[in-house]
Design a protein around this nucleic acid. Sequence first.
RNA 1: GCGCGCUUAGCUCAGUUGGUAGAGCAAUUCGUUUACACCGAAAAGGUCGGGGGUUCAAAUCCCUCAGCGCGCACCA
Length: 735
Amino acid sequence: MNEELKKPFNPIEHENLIYKKWEESGFFNPDVCVAKGVTKAEADYFSIVLPPPNVTGTLHTGHALMLAIQDIMVRYNRMLKKRTLWIPGTDHAAISTESVVVKQLSKENKNKHELGREEFLNKVKDFTQKSHDTIVVQLKKMGASLDWSREAFTLDEKREEAVYTTFEKMYNDGLIYRGYRIVNWDPKGQTTVSDDEVEHQPKKAKLYYFKYDKDFPITIATTRPETKLGDTAVAVNPDDSRYKKYIGKTIEVNFVGVPLSIKIIEDKEVDPEFGTGALGVTPSHSQIDWQMADRHKLEKIQIINEYAKVMVDHPDYKDKKVEEVRKIIVDKLREQNLLEKEEEIDHNISVSQRTGAVIEPLPKLQWFIDVNRPFKIKGDNIKGQAFSKGSTTTLKILMSEVVSNNQIKIIPERFKKVYAEWLTNLHDWCISRQIWYGHRIPVWYRGEEAKISKKSPGEDWEQDPDTLDTWFSSGLWTFSTLGWPENTDDLKNYHPTSILETGHDILFFWVARMILMSVYILGEIPFKEVYLHGMILDKNGKKMSKSNPETAVDPLLTIEKYGADALRMAMIVGVGPGSNNSLSEDKIKAYKHFANKIWNIARFVLENCQGQSFEVGAVQGLSLATPENNAHLEKFDGLIKEVTDDMENYRFYLAAEKLYHYTWHTFADIIIEESKTKIKEGGEKAESTKNMLGFLLKEQLKLLHPFMPFITEKIWSLLPNTENLLMIESWPSRK
RNA sequence: GCGCGCUUAGCUCAGUUGGUAGAGCAAUUCGUUUACACCGAAAAGGUCGGGGGUUCAAAUCCCUCAGCGCGCACCA
């Protein structure tokens, strides 16, 4: 017997070597599998993209979960002999990455403007290269069977080509436009952010009731008195009889020393129940007020700047922060006896998800994707009568339909509703960011002229300084990684991808954007199914993440201690799609014990079954098969059926648990225990039993391989008649 | 305000189409002449959040209430 088997199983001794063996075999690449006859050229395909981790740091345990699930899918499908492709890559994560590097600079008392755009970007490049290299090591340690020959980066040259081509097409179709309107401004990050990057936090606030001046007839209520410096109207509901007589009038007021011209208007958006039922309209600093101003042709005065400071030319306010001005104004109103009431209310403040800064709504000239503008569909691959090639639709309708009609199936299904709800609230997507790291907007200006171009159209042209939202490039991921805009074989062979596996927290950010881009650019869905996993929680139920150092766990430390196989099993067993997972060290330890159990099973079988072929099927044809052994084989057949069924329906958590129980409590505790006496007795019964043990071990390794690839591959290599790697064996089929 | 999820053994959670409950860890008892103490055997532990309904039968389906968590919207 092999000397290695005599020691207890020690994962770190084997895992790196095994991964190297897999890589060298080339079988992670489906082209190699076809060339070497492992898969048939005309076989079905299974393709999946790795959600590209951000190059802002290293992987955490949450990533380990997604890798475990995806690798299980990939290895299972590879064993079904499909042409199986799993594409690796990383995401430049524009804002996150830039803010990490900016923070590092500030520790050295520097800022990016001192460095200049080019040097700053070089710094970012150094940083991201290091992150990337760490991430690649981590991916390999987890056992991820990714096709490294196809590795991509959202900001590399090929993806740049895809981004440019997309931008140009959308611009020419009128789906990308430049517009002046209220955006979510992050004063800390000094950039706009999209609606989805804004979080709402509950907070107690004061609602102030007052009049602009003593002669003004109507009391208004607001939580932000400082913005009233930019008011141009007071709006009331058309059905509100209290204010009827004032409608249409324009009243000149002196609001805390600042002259304003206030028009009284009626608008059905005003809630007569809230405050006094009269709303001070601030067109430049509120989304709703901006729209009202458009409807009523009101003047729009910007009074707050990008640094959240007041711009009004008055010595008491100019260049002071909004909070400070608020206090000053409230004090003045009180002195002038204009403040009628202060009411404590619960409300939500908008905060930038990335920087934590309070969002300041500001009017700005930005680039948007129009989700409601009609355009013609390119392809013929989207189901539904309204969607044949050349018909007219909008991005919003398309995004909605492909999910509601189940062309794209979401698992678990409840997220279908969440997705639909998001779509009903979807506005045009602001895609320009005032940061340096990312895809630069390919538009050049000369005076009033604008041109789309990759390179400068001439000497006096200047490129738009802004970059694109990081999700613009990741939205292209399913096809930009397959070679688009070139019409490659990969694109023909592997798109739409079979499934997308990711966390439910990026359903809107990423999944929705990929659907948008793919249906628009290719006229086909990006993936047939979406499997959403939950969040990893620590044992106190807190979300594990980089931003929470108390709970962040480097998966490499866990792997070193318990092995990747144990970590994978601990993440999978008992965790259904979409549900959160409290991962405890005890659970991981339990599966390390399981790995050791398998190891010892292999030792027992190899010691006792020398001379046996271990050949699949050898038992079935054996005349000396005993009724008891046949019963065991029949039971195993049932296991294959159940596990296969679970795999097909994405019930990995059940499949893994069943395999665990079978191996430990049926194979080891019953079959092996029984075999001891039979083998001692010798004769035909003993031979039959030995034959069965070898057969069952080999088949179990196959079933366990997607879940615990390392140890199963290692043991496989120690068995007789195993010239091929286990990773390219066929998944057991039921007789 | 709208929507979603969760509530099962001390802890963390499974329970796939309804057939009166399972795992890991912890705790109890016993066992070590070698596959494995990272082990084996045995026993213990639950009115499946409360209430109501459908059914021959409900942890599972329906209604309702409560607690916890999440998403979205509003936010003058």
